[in-house]
């Protein structure tokens, strides 16, 4: 709680500094800043799924070079921590020059609920990325990668798909394993999963970041291959809606 307060105070200071910078820049040149202008954003994330929770969400506005993940490439260790255990701290620490909103839902974002964050972007941080682990999955996450923030004021809305980090076998066994490299799913927050699964698969043959193929689940909560319920824990894309208001 104290950490969050501290972050809030820091954020307020950042807004003031940005405003000062912006007004100085305006005096210097009105044409030069049009490409790199600081912006005030309201960002809403909606969990569109019926039975999947999102762990703490990382929202970042960053430069054109930064990417939190790349489809078709091996996940970074930082992305793996987020995708397997919901821990966004290492990914966030990587983003030294980005403007960030961390964990706006103050914990889990339940199915069919929304959370919002305000973000003041600094000059040059013109791309938006959003990630959060999906529970219960082994290493599934929602991913918005490098969305160009429009310079024109307005409300922009789009949907986001589910990715698989490619770092852990989708065994669908709820073991509490959330540490990188530890097998299994950390938890099923809806408390509607089972036990006693023998494991859907023990291998992850595609070790690159890819679109998640979805949970399989089964109809036996005390046995079968999976600990997940096939009528509750599946999904179809898209899994999230992001609404960005550029003020």
């Amino acid at each position: 709680m104290n950490m969050l307060l501290l972050q809030a105070v820091k954020k307020t200071k950042k807004i003031k500094n940005t405003a000062l910078l912006l007004s100085t820049a305006l005096l210097l040149s009105t044409t030069a800043i049009s490409q790199v202008q600081a912006q005030e954003l309201d960002i809403k994330v909606t969990n569109l799924t019926q039975g999947i929770y999102f762990t703490p969400i990382l929202i970042a506005a960053h430069d054109s070079e930064t990417q939190l993940f790349k489809s078709g490439e091996i996940a970074s260790a930082e992305l793996q921590m987020m995708a397997e255990g919901g821990d966004i701290s290492a990914l966030s620490a990587m983003l030294t020059t980005a403007d960030k909103a961390e964990n706006p839902a103050m914990g889990l974002l339940a199915p069919a609920t929304s959370t919002s964050a305000m973000l003041s972007t600094m000059d040059g941080n013109m791309y938006l990325s959003v990630v959060a682990m999906m529970l219960p999955t082994n290493d599934g996450f929602i991913g918005l990668n490098r969305w160009k923030i429009p310079s024109e004021a307005g409300t922009y809305s789009f949907t986001v798909n589910a990715y698989d980090a490619g770092t852990e076998a989708n065994d669908e066994m709820i073991t509490g394993g959330g540490a990188p490299g530890a097998a299994g799913i950390p938890a099923a927050p809806g408390m509607n999963a089972g036990t006693g699964g023998t494991g859907v698969t023990m291998t992850e043959d595609n070790t690159y970041v890819h679109i998640h193929r979805g949970n399989l689940g089964d109809d036996d909560l005390t046995a079968g291959k999976s600990d997940l319920d096939n009528t509750v824990h599946r999904w179809l894309n898209p899994v999230a809606r992001i609404t960005v208001t550029v003020n």
Binding site: G51, D219, N237
Partner: peptide
């Protein structure tokens, strides 16, 4: 859950829900 959400698709008897009246043919995607 008494909230509108996106549909997760049907499971069907062919894909692991033994009590389902639906078959693989009833599966859909967006």
């Amino acid at each position: 859950i008494d909230k509108v959400a996106m549909h997760s698709g049907i499971v069907s008897v062919d894909d692991g829900l033994m009590v389902s009246a639906l078959t693989q043919a009833h599966r859909f995607d967006n």
